[in-house]
Each structure stands twice: as structure tokens, then as C-alpha cells.
Design a protein around this nucleic acid. Structure first.
Lengths: 230, 230
DNA sequence: TTGACTTAGTGAATTAATGCACTAAGCCCT
DNA sequence: AGGGCTTAGTGCATTAATTCACTAAGTCAA
């Protein structure tokens, strides 16, 4: 959780920028040109002061008395998040989830084309899924170099996930999105984000349980935190 | 972000309990009987004081000088998270992702069996995927009642996601896991957690970008926060 | 041009989360 | 039985995040 130069943007704010961006895309799609912090706050479900503070980390891009321009602010957020370019993705693990993600629109449409998928199972290597042929995880180093891949997505079994991470690190990848319910061990120079569906459900279950115990109502799950390994 | 009675456990701690639980399962699988807060902290990649504090919210279940018992603590965490029972799940949206999740081991194995999958597309309704027949989203109310469903998972397109959420709420569901990159509007009595893969990638891209700008090293993504709508 | 109104930007207070460092307990060895 | 060792539990200082409430700038109408 450290940076060197450039404005230091709080982690919590960085995690919200993609959400603002997505809302701005919707606004643009409906031909909205301007918006106020109040409006964006309502759409994002957060406090207006938080919106203004978050956006102020990017610079002073609003106009007092008026608001923010959709296209201009979109540009600024994308610049800050490094979204002025595409980042190629490799999926490690060609199971159900891996193949579904390889086909998943959401990746490409947000600027993260899945350009390769690999597995360690000889039975899967060579198969084709959504215009990609499953490669051998042992070739990862070459694939990453040849395809100019920046991000690795791990969709292997839990048992295989650490080996997958090791292969990615070995191949020079420094950003990993991990779907396996495992706390990966990686060099501190590698960014790892975990998406553990079980964790999400268990958090929901906590609040569901609470509802039953307290006789419903007034119990509400926070939206924040997919919580804290590493 | 509110509760009524019972120990109030900080949100950040609740989000970590499932991770501890998963590690305890691994320990049990390797016949480990006891562990110290230091050991769990190392496995979870967090501070040991944080582990002790988190566990202390459950009660005083450790033994000084000794540590915690794996089975006993597992039981306590499960009790707290409401995992002493199963919670039935319905998937709304029988696309690639929805079908992959319906087959996904991780749900059942963590106590969240997917007992139904529905869609609004007549072409998909009636198809069979992994022993489930795709139902009609309009029958959701009956399905939820008959199958005793507690949790809804939205894997529709962005465009259809709000309608899906409305259907779930209408059917009496109070816990929603949303994969669509949309900030859903729901009554405050409903818990929503968002898993937006695009957001995750964009956060990674921020740090990847930072590495390029600062000449690599010493930049590290935080693990926390899948960030804050609602 | 002036004055009413809107809204971004931000200092400062508040609240939440973290992590240090100490205290309290229990084990084990002699 | 006692002393040393280990480790849970926790008060307190620190840090991070949030929110309030004010200030600074701009628009617009008359």
C-alpha cells in the first residue's frame, strides 16, 4: 500500500473510481453532458462529500456552481487508472470458470482482452474455447512475452492455485486476479486481488443470519471490503 | 452497516472471518489440531494482533500460552457467520457466467447449494445445465418459496440486472450477490454485495500503471476493498 | 452590475480500523 | 512448588477514512 511520487490517492478512493467511471459511461450513453457531485453520489450510493473528495484527488476538474463534465472527467479517471491503453490478460485454468471468463464480454469491453488461456491438464491443452486454444501452463513465459500480457487471472482449483501463481510470477507477471479461495504467497512487488465467491456468500450469510436472530429489519450488509489477506 | 443486539463485530473483521475459516479448513485437512495467532496471521497475511482482536469478537476461545483449537474455533466462526446450516441459492441469468457458477463446486462445498437457475429468455428456459433446468424468471416467487431459497446471484447483462434485482426482492430475497457492473437500487433491508470483475482489473491496472510510471518496484496493491456503492 | 443561488473544493471533526506493547494466564521443566 | 516461557486478550496510540460544514467561484436573472 505504498506509492512513490505523483498524488497519493487513498486506497479506498481508488477502489471507488472504477464505479464512478462505470456510472459516467452510463451517463454518456444517455447523452448527459454534466453532473453534480450530488447526482453522482446518488447514483453511486455514497456521500456527496466523498465524491467530491475522491474526484479532487485527480485534480481540480469541476466547475463551482456548475458541476463536472462527463467526457472530461471520464478521461481524467481513465488516465489515473491507467485505462488509456488495453492490458492483455491470460487466464490460468481452463475449467468452467476459466472458460466462462475467457468468453466474458466484461473483460474485453472494459479494456482487458483475454488473449490466452492455459492449463496444466494435457486433456485440456489444445482444446478451443471462444477462439482461443488452451495452451500449456509450462509455456507461460513465452506466451506472456509474445502476447504482451500484463495480468494473470487464476481460475484453477485451490490445490493448483499456488503453482499457477508461481508460474505467473516466474513469467514476469506483476498483477494477479485470483479466484481460488487461497491466500497466495507472492513477492511483495506483485499485486494480488482475490475474488472469493465463497467469502462473499459467507458475508451475506452473516447478515442473513443476523436478520433471523434479530427478527429481520434494520440489518444491512456494508458494501465495502472483500477483505484482507496480504 | 448496522446491527441491533449481539456483539457488534466491525465490518472489516467480519470480512476476514471467512478467510480464517478457509485456512482452518486447510489446517484440519492436514491434521493440525492447534495454532497460534502468529501462525494464522502468517497464513492469512495479516498482523497477529489483528487476528487476536478479530477472534476476540467471537468470544474468548483461545488458551493463553497455548493457542486456539482448530475444530473448536472453526465451529465458533461458522456459528457466528451463520454457517451451521446451508443457504440455498438461485442464479438469475443463464449465460456463460451463470451456468459456470451453477456448476461451480465452490458454492456447494461452502454450504451454498445452487438449487435453481432462471432466465428471462424463452430460448434458454427449459434448457438443462448441470442437473438444473433453467426456469422462468417470472416464476421466481414460487421457486424461491418452494426451494426455500435465501440468496440470489445476478449474472444477467447490465441492462437486465436491475429488473433481476427487482424480481428477487419481489420474491422475498434479502441477500443478493451481483456480478453485473451496475449499482443496484434495492430497499435498505436487502444486503447486496457486488463482484465486479472489471473493477478488480481496473484497480490492478492502476498499480500496474504506477509501476510503469515510477519505474517499477515498491508499488503494491492493497488487498482490501471491493469498494463502495450503496 | 448586483444579488440570489448553486456547487466544487477543502479544513477540521469524527469515526473506524490498525497495530503496538503491555498484562494476564496457562504450560512445562526442574 | 517455583520460575521461565509462550501466547491470548486488550488498552491505547496511531493512522486511515468518512463526513460535516464552511469558503470560494461560478451562473443566471433582473
Amino acid at each position: 500500500m505504498t506509492q512513490l511520487q505523483r498524488r497519493k490517492i487513498p486506497d479506498a478512493a481508488i477502489a471507488r473510481l472504477p464505479i464512478y467511471l462505470q456510472i459516467l459511461n452510463n451517463l454518456a450513453a444517455t447523452n448527459v453532458l454534466r453532473f453534480s457531485s450530488d447526482e453522482l453520489a446518488a447514483l453511486a450510493g455514497v456521500n456527496a462529500a466523498k465524491v467530491r473528495k475522491d474526484l479532487s484527488y485527480l485534480g481540480s476538474y469541476g466547475t463551482r456552481g456548475v458541476g463536472y463534465e462527463v467526457t472530461y472527467l471520464t478521461h481524467q479517471i481513465k488516465r489515473e487508472l491507467g485505462l488509456m491503453r488495453e492490458w492483455n490478460v491470460v487466464v490460468v485454468g481452463a475449467g468452467n470458470l476459466g472458460c466462462a471468463l475467457a468468453k466474458f464480454d466484461g473483460f474485453l469491453s472494459r479494456g482487458f482482452p483475454v488473449v490466452a488461456i492455459v492449463d496444466n491438464d494435457p486433456k485440456k491443452i489444445g482444446r478451443t474455447t471462444s477462439s482461443l486454444t488452451v495452451g500449456d501452463v509450462n509455456d507461460l513465459k513465452n506466451i506472456v512475452r509474445d502476447e504482451k500480457i500484463s495480468i494473470g487471472v487464476i481460475t484453477t482449483s485451490s490445490a493448483a492455485s499456488q503453482a499457477a501463481a508461481d508460474s505467473l510470477v516466474e513469467a514476469g507477471i506483476t498483477s494477479i486476479l485470483n479466484f481460488a479461495p487461497v491466500v497466495l504467497s507472492t513477492p511483495s512487488s506483485v499485486s494480488v486481488r482475490n475474488v472469493d465467491l465463497g467469502v462473499e456468500l459467507q458475508i451475506l450469510s452473516y447478515f442473513e443470519q443476523m436478520r433471523l436472530e434479530t427478527g429481520s429489519k434494520s440489518v444491512n450488509a456494508p458494501q465495502l471490503n472483500t477483505a484482507g489477506a496480504r
